[in-house]
Design a protein around this nucleic acid. Structure first.
Lengths: 190, 190
DNA sequence: TTTTTGTTTAACAATTTTGTTAACAAAGGT
DNA sequence: ACCTTTGTTAACAAAATTGTTAAACAAAAA
């Protein structure tokens, strides 16, 4: 792997994997085992590194979901697959969404082109169709997306806090998360 | 309001309200309209200000939930009230949980006493009772808490990102959020 | 009034973090 | 071999951020 790529991957590991959003360029360089100046060489500035990582994360998220969402399989299976993909990603990068939020809220942030994903529109239509069939409750289809993504992501994102608040040991929490898929499916359908 | 309190409130506004987690002491001081040295005078260091804010946030969260959870009202009403309280808080402080996560994950962080909330145990028992009654599905009662809090918090926390990804205008998003309470209740109770 | 105590500020000092540069090394092409 | 491009590093410079102090000031206490 090129050092440029190594730096990016390491940054992602720190930001998305460890939730260490305050990481300095020195800390990123150390974690990657490279000289700090290389970060400036490849990315010009700290901000640009952040932006790069940010954009790639959004792109990644989008393409992953697109892939699942376009598949020509029954709705329930599609949702099941959606959960699988999401869960897998969350295991590697529990804090990716948190990072994105933080970046969006931060001062020096430039908003990029916001064009609606075609895949999403497609999926929303399928959701409406399911609602008409009576498989799921009738609401604005985005509410379905809210419900689904919330149930998947939130318990993972909040792990450090909930382990404290709910006083659940690490192993137990892991086990609880592993049971989530079925619970979500039960919750969503019927 | 004393300036000490003003500083704390302003910090909370920036962190929890605006999601601006990178705020410097100068920015906090400016937002509060006080001299930066006052922050050091009252809180000794930046870290201690953060810790203070952090601890108060956790304490607040806990006490609020406790109040709701101990009430002697039917389970469904209790959940309904739980949603109300949570929603109201989320309106003021959408990013409070995000802040807590970020702080917990950050380097110089000291973990405090983690004693299980008595109120929570109490609530979990009620959940189990409801499960036995058949009102809600039978799982580990913590899963119920996961489901409930996820459905409430996640769409709010993710607003900046989802407005982009789902291409939903501000007003529409607000409206969607306002409909959530009923949707959550429908979702939770069969 | 005088003293004490607590509050507030500007100026300074120290530290941390970031950005730049110049020198050097490695790789690739001619 | 030579030259050119690219990658890498240490050292330095600049900027940003934090922490400290002394002095001014006001309010309360003696």
């Amino acid at each position: 792997m090129s050092k440029e790529e190594l730096i990016k991957q390491t940054a992602k590991e720190l930001f998305f994997g460890k939730g260490y959003l305050h990481a300095t360029t020195q800390e990123i360089a150390d974690a990657a085992g490279v000289n700090r100046a290389l970060i400036n060489y490849y990315f010009r500035s700290r901000d640009l590194l952040f932006q790069t990582v940010y954009l790639e994360a959004v792109e990644n998220l989008r393409s992953q979901l697109d892939e699942v969402i376009y598949g020509d399989i029954p709705f329930k299976e599609k949702v099941s697959l959606f959960i699988d993909v999401h869960m897998k990603e969350l295991q590697r990068y529990p804090y990716r969404e948190s990072f994105l939020i933080t970046e969006i809220c931060s001062k020096n942030f430039v908003l990029e082109d916001k064009k609606k994903s075609a895949a999403l529109s497609h999926f929303l239509k399928e959701v409406v169709a399911e609602m008409d069939k009576g498989t799921i409750r009738k609401y604005d289809p985005i509410q379905f997306v809210f419900n689904l993504t919330s149930l998947i992501s939130f318990p993972v994102i909040m792990m450090p806090l909930y382990k404290k608040l709910l006083d659940v040991p690490k192993e137990k929490y892991k086990q609880l998360l592993s049971e989530r898929k079925q619970i979500i499916l039960d919750q969503i359908f019927n």
